[in-house]
């Protein structure tokens, strides 16, 4: 069944910045299609999210599936095409997949080094998947003139932290893909940008060994005296989506209250 409202498509919609984007863009009147992969322990939270984002004349679809699989991509895009029929398609796509292997690249006292499979999975989920989804969304006609793609990166793309090697490489690759996609899609009027959030207390951050020190340091150096919140990120994305212009493209946009440049 068609729906004339624009769609926002979010990879990683059940928590953190993806969830905040779902909530913010829904509040701005968009239909939201979110993909996530969670065990049943997340169900009460997901039920609440669905309850909060249902109604108001907008559609909200939340699918529990592995976004890194081509079969999932095929079925989701098929469904999205049906849902978006007769409307403006996907106005906003957000890549917020945070699933990577954490560990040293070289064996140390804390454990074995990351394996080839772990490195490949991290690169595939956190970087390559952006390309695959954009390829298929574009090919299916869901991305078009005025559409905006955002990929969530971090300062870790150009800095080092313990256990962060694979994710750091994935973020660097993600930023390179953003530049290249922006270049290739410019004539189609599709903008592609990376959002470099400041340190944000998300479920993904809490999994990084030693994250307490990262949080403490960010609180000390951030000129605003506080951490970035998922809502800060969602509001920045929503702000850029309000204007039809796609002239901001190919950038890594800091949404961190000035944290990156502070020491």
């Amino acid at each position: 069944m068609g729906n004339p409202r624009p769609w926002c498509f979010i990879l990683g919609a059940s928590s953190g910045m993806g969830e905040a984007c779902a909530r913010q863009l829904h509040a701005e009147g968009m239909n939201v299609y979110g993909l996530h992969l969670d065990p049943s322990s997340a169900q009460p939270h997901l039920d609440q999210l669905v309850a909060d984002l249902s109604g108001d004349g907008t559609r909200f679809r939340l699918v529990n599936a592995n976004a890194a699989k081509s079969s999932v991509r095929e079925s989701v895009i098929g469904e999205l095409k049906e849902l978006a029929q007769g409307g403006p398609g996907v106005a906003v796509a957000v890549h917020s997949l945070a699933f990577g292997a954490l560990g040293p690249l070289v064996a140390d006292g804390d454990g074995p080094p990351l394996s080839a499979r772990q490195l490949e999975m991290t690169l595939n989920v956190m970087a390559n998947s952006l390309v695959y989804w954009v390829q298929d969304l574009y090919r299916s006609g869901l991305l078009g003139r005025g559409s905006k793609v955002f990929a969530l990166t971090s300062a870790g793309s150009s800095k080092v932290a313990a256990s962060y090697g694979a994710v750091s490489a994935a973020k660097a690759a993600l930023e390179a893909y953003v530049r290249q996609l922006a270049f290739e899609l410019a004539r189609s009027g599709v903008a592609v940008n990376a959002i470099r959030a400041g340190v944000t207390l998300t479920p993904a951050l809490r999994k990084i060994p030693g994250h307490e020190r990262i949080v403490q340091r960010a609180q000390e150096i951030n000129p605003h005296g506080r951490l970035t919140t998922p809502e800060d990120v969602a509001q920045a994305i929503a702000l850029m989506c309000r204007a039809p212009s796609t002239w901001i493209t190919g950038n890594v946009i800091g949404v961190d209250g000035g944290e990156y440049f502070s020491s």
Binding site: L37, N64, N66, R117, Q118, M121, V125
Partner: peptide, 11 residues
């Protein structure tokens, strides 16, 4: 299979 597939199996 990688660890993402493991989460998928569990879910």
């Amino acid at each position: 299979a990688d660890s993402l597939r493991a989460i998928e199996i569990m879910a």
